[in-house]
Design a protein around this nucleic acid. Structure first.
Length: 564
RNA sequence: UGCCCAAUAGUAUAAAGGUAGUACGUCAGAUUCUGGAUCUGAGUGUCUUGGUUCGAAUCCAGGUUGGGCAACCA
């Protein structure tokens, strides 16, 4: 028993291992992580990996997580983003211990800087940005010292205070750390700590005209909060020696940085810059366009927090570059929605069926809301003499493996009767306009003799009772696997058919009461979610994802044969 | 002739010197009042060359490949 249990235990990822070792060694009483977004854009599915990691790690080991906005660059940041970020994190199901801002620490950071100046470890540089870049050297050549590198402590202090006092224009001077201009790691070649920006900050307003750089804000903020494990993405690996250098020289709480590989998903892009371009250039309708990989886009499309957390859990955490198949994300959302979505019938592309031997006016037949969940009940679906079925559910000349309706053949109408196709009506052009069918009264669902064997069950809608709804079908936003790594600009690879709008699908009347807290499965069609563009007069549904469709695959296999 | 990180099925992710496993995807079958779900089965993998060892995905060395680093961005 003990052994079996062990085998079932999920193995730890490398960060969990580090945390367990630290805890076992008594290095910390409890852990404190942080999620540090810059409020300059909306959160995307990649961030959810980091959110689940940071909050999940703390949850698992009885620690806490701070939310800290990394707002050190006033020109790109905005409170609009702060609000959306908070909403998205909460929606994903996490709550932070503290809400902090790097800008809360501006005064402390400033004092840290003066401390380093006093220790002779920072200096004010009057060089232009170009000159600084030039003197930085290249990866293979050492940098050269700035002519201002050896100013006295007093002079540096005065100059830095003058910078703060607003005596200089943007770009006129910077404060630099005095590390090592010939370090093989370029991050260590006297990195800039402060720059002058006479810009309005979303929180501190005009109180400051100098702002710390990431490297002189992030690690210090971690330290101030006593973050134990500061988890970031791989591109910061080369910053870690600097992260540690500042902490060591400042003699402050030693937070430690660990890096993992960011999430990449195929058939989409993940950088904020590229997502912003999609929005600004009108390729999508906004940050919450259901085709966007943003949290808000996925939410609008009908993804659930559970499905995204499951996804984050399944992809794991490692240090190698990855490109994850969207089919895994789709699997996760189907897995969850299958258990919670209410079943409804909607016909997208109607074909009229008349039940010639049906004499009643109407019947309201019970149909299960969710066969996966016994706790859910049934709703009543109206049946009448004239129905719509899906055009593709009928073929006049069916191939061998076609199980649905064709002349002389029978199918079951879900939760209703078995019908037989007796006659195909066509217009002058030869187009099929209507099917004449007869029903088997004794085959009524739930009846004593209802277990007649037919090859297929299809969905349908009663014409006199049907309501209409707009349906928006989404496909991948890009035609290629990895648009960011193609030769041409990523916008060249946008899928022109990523959105297909059906202005008027025919739905059973129960959908009139569709709500935002419910997810729906349109039988045999996919999972759908009410869109925010809906109004009293007009229902609009987004397709979250299709159902798995083995018939679609079968058709593709047959296609070459049919061409012969 | 720089520094750093990484490399296991198609995609991810385990195996901490001792039988290469899991998930998604793919394929086949069973079942089904959703061609869904469910169930069963199949196939595919340790970047390379040496070394250490009774034994290497794992340790060592060289190579190869991919990624990051030269923003007053984060």
């Amino acid at each position: 028993m003990e052994e079996i249990k062990k085998e079932e235990e999920k193995s730890l990822n490398f960060l969990e291992e580090i945390v367990e070792e630290d805890l076992a060694a008594g290095k910390y009483k409890s852990i404190l992580t942080r999620f540090p977004p810059e409020p300059n854009g909306y959160l995307h599915i990649g961030h959810s990996k980091s959110i689940v990691l940071n909050f999940g790690l703390a949850q698992k080991y009885g620690g806490k997580t701070n939310l800290r906005f990394d707002d050190t660059n006033p020109v790109t940041e905005d409170t609009e983003y702060v609000e959306s970020i908070k909403e998205d994190i909460r929606w994903l199901g996490f709550e932070w211990a503290n809400e902090f801002y790097a800008s809360d620490y501006f005064e402390q950071l400033y004092l840290f800087a003066e401390d380093l100046i006093g220790k002779g470890l920072a200096y004010v540089d009057d060089s232009s940005a170009e000159d600084i870049a030039l003197m930085k050297g290249t990866p293979t050549e050492a940098g050269t010292a700035s002519p201002y590198r050896n100013r006295t402590v007093e002079e540096n202090l005065q100059l830095f205070r003058d910078m703060r006092a607003g005596k200089y224009r943007d770009g006129e001077r910077v404060l630099r750390a005095k590390v090592d201009m010939s370090a093989p790691n370029m991050q260590l070649r006297d990195p800039i700590m402060y720059r002058i920006k006479h810009a309005h900050h979303h929180r501190t307003g005009d109180a400051w005209c100098i702002y710390p750089m990431y490297d002189f804000a992030h690690g210090q903020s971690d330290s101030i909060e006593h973050i134990t494990h500061s988890i970031c993405t791989l591109e910061f690996v080369s910053h870690r020696p600097l992260y540690d250098w500042f902490i060591e020289k400042l003699e402050i709480y030693p937070s430690r940085q660990y890096e993992f590989a960011r999430l990449n998903l195929n058939y989409t892009v993940m950088s904020k810059r590229k997502l912003l371009q999609l929005v600004n250039k009108g390729y999508v309708t906004g940050w919450d366009d259901p085709r966007m990989p943003t949290i808000s886009g996925l939410r609008r499309r009908g993804y659930t927090p559970e499905s995204i957390r499951m996804f984050a859990d399944k992809i794991g955490v490692q240090k190698r570059e990855n490109l994850i198949d969207v089919s895994l994300l789709e699997f996760c959302v189907r897995e969850h929605l299958n258990k919670v979505a209410l079943r409804r019938m909607v016909v997208f592309d109607p074909l009229k069926v008349v039940i010639t031997n049906y004499e009643q006016e109407e019947e309201w037949l019970p149909s299960e809301d969710n066969p996966e969940d016994a706790a859910t009940g049934h709703r009543k679906v109206p049946f009448s003499r004239e129905l719509y079925i899906e055009n593709e559910d009928f073929m006049e000349h069916p191939p061998k493996k076609f199980f649905r309706l064709s002349p002389g053949q029978m199918v079951r109408l879900k939760s209703a009767y078995v019908i037989k196709c007796d006659e195909v009506i066509k217009d002058a052009a030869g187009k099929i306009t209507e099917l004449r069918c007869s029903h088997l009264p004794e085959s009524k669902s739930g009846g004593a003799q209802s277990n007649i064997k037919v090859q297929a069950t299809i969905h349908w809608v009663s014409i006199p009772h049907a309501i209409t709804a707009e349906v928006r079908l989404y496909d991948r936003l890009f035609r290629v696997d990895d648009p960011a790594n193609e030769e041409a600009d990523f916008s060249e690879y946008i899928n022109p058919d990523s959105l297909q709008v059906l202005p008027a699908a025919y739905a059973e009347p129960a959908l009139r009461d569709a709500k935002f807290n419910e997810h729906y499965q349109f039988l045999r069609k996919g999972y759908f979610y009410l869109d925010k563009d809906s109004s009293e007069e007009k229902l609009i549904f987004n397709r979250t994802t299709t159902l798995r469709d083995t018939w679609e695959k079968e058709k593709k296999k047959d296609r070459p044969n049919q061409e012969k």
